[in-house]
Nucleic acid binder design. Structure first.
Lengths: 146, 146
DNA sequence: ATATGTGCAAACGATTTGCAACCCT
DNA sequence: AGGGTTGCAAATCGTTTGCACATAT
């Protein structure tokens, strides 16, 4: 069985356990996400999905990403200018994201990068940090030089 | 002279130095921002501006905020779900922002909160962090309890 | 059988833009 | 006078929603 196939089976079981269903569009989205390791914009997901099954509508991609997020299978990160990037939840224990404000590239960062900050926020302000939900903003090395 | 008046004079000088102009809408936006210390959404700015001068169009508020950002007089922070919050650049040396994902409230944080993280990002990844450009996400104390 | 999902098109909210008129400098 | 700026309306962009039909269970 392919990697995507394994994921699809596992997700199907979890969906059915909640009275939900595994469908063509959901298979296509999972296949699209499993095929790429980067963080995909909705447009990129739509393109990949269309390559798998051209009959899948854009709105279904949104609804599927939402459904899979609620299942905990997919995570989204808010990146610059109102866009959102999606990726399968891996087994790397979570990671953070940084986006270059010049070129827009999103890179992964170690999951523990903000642990100290999170502790300080908790003790000093009672604020519970959700470190991986929003990409840090700045400039990547190539853009900072230019 | 009022606080807003002082700001307007200073900004007018900097605008003229660049061949740009101080206008009614720009005065109204500066007055609106100077009158409140919080971070204002565009809607809040528009409301405050309308109170000062009802003839100012929404599009001009956007253009003015953009122009004042380029001047360095106004800063914007990206907060949840594609919204942007604006505030005058104060003389507090800069501060960071945290937004509660439940209630949406934005609070200020010390400007040095991410200094250590910024150093680590710079040395390990060559990434130049722009710490105040995006609000950290999480839950504020009241919402975390509930 | 039946309720969950889907395609479609229209609605939506935030922001941007083309253009003629306007008004700072 | 001349060009930066404005108001207006229409366009754009990403996303959501109402509805009738399809399909997974």
């Amino acid at each position: 069985m392919t990697a995507a196939g394994t994921v699809i089976e596992a997700v199907a079981a979890r969906l059915r356990a909640r009275g939900e269903r595994m469908t063509g569009p959901r298979r296509a989205v999972l296949t699209a996400l499993a095929g790429r390791t980067e963080h995909l914009s909705v447009d990129e997901v739509v393109s990949a999905v269309t390559a798998v099954d051209p009959s899948v509508h854009r709105a279904s991609v949104y609804r599927t990403l939402e459904a899979l997020s609620e299942l905990g299978v997919v995570q989204h990160v808010h990146v610059g200018h109102g866009r959102t990037a999606y990726h399968l939840v891996g087994n790397d224990g979570g990671h953070l994201h940084a986006q270059c404000r010049s070129c827009g590239a999103v890179r992964d960062l170690p999951g523990d990068l903000l642990d100290g900050t999170a502790r300080r926020l908790a003790t000093e302000f009672g604020f519970v940090l959700d470190a991986d939900h929003v990409a840090l903003s700045g400039q990547c090395a190539p853009c900072a030089e230019a």
